[in-house]
């Protein structure tokens, strides 16, 4: 009997939870705010679903109810992707070490 592909996806999911668990515990507490903003950005990879939804209309009729929801989701996810990565970068750029020349 063949294994349902769902089982493979479930395996990836469960193992990723464990990976996430160990990776996040190793994040230094001083970077917890950038952690939240970057997780925000990466969870917006949901944009791939939004793109499929947006392109679901046929060429005569680009906008149908289903694709409109797709386009809206694209915009929302894009706000998050750009906003999330850029604000993370802005924050990380501020973390500086003690200057050596200052005693």
């Amino acid at each position: 009997m063949e294994i349902d592909p769902l089982i493979f996806r479930l395996s990836i999911f469960i193992l990723s939870i464990f990976v996430g668990y160990y990776v996040v515990w190793s994040v230094t507490p001083s970077l917890h705010t950038p952690l939240m903003s970057v997780t925000n950005a990466i969870s917006s990879v949901i944009i791939v679903g939004a793109i499929i939804a947006g392109l679901s209309g046929n060429s005569d009729n680009v906008f149908n109810t289903s694709s409109i929801f797709g386009f809206l989701a694209i915009a929302l996810a894009a706000i998050n992707i750009f906003g999330g990565f850029l604000v993370t970068q802005r924050m990380l750029a501020m973390y500086k070490k003690k200057k050596k020349n200052k005693k």
Partner: peptide, 14 residues
């Protein structure tokens, strides 16, 4: 979609 599943799990546990 694997990327979405992995990310979801990462963010969820984070």
């Amino acid at each position: 979609n694997t990327a979405l599943i992995i990310t979801g799990a990462l963010v969820g546990s984070s």
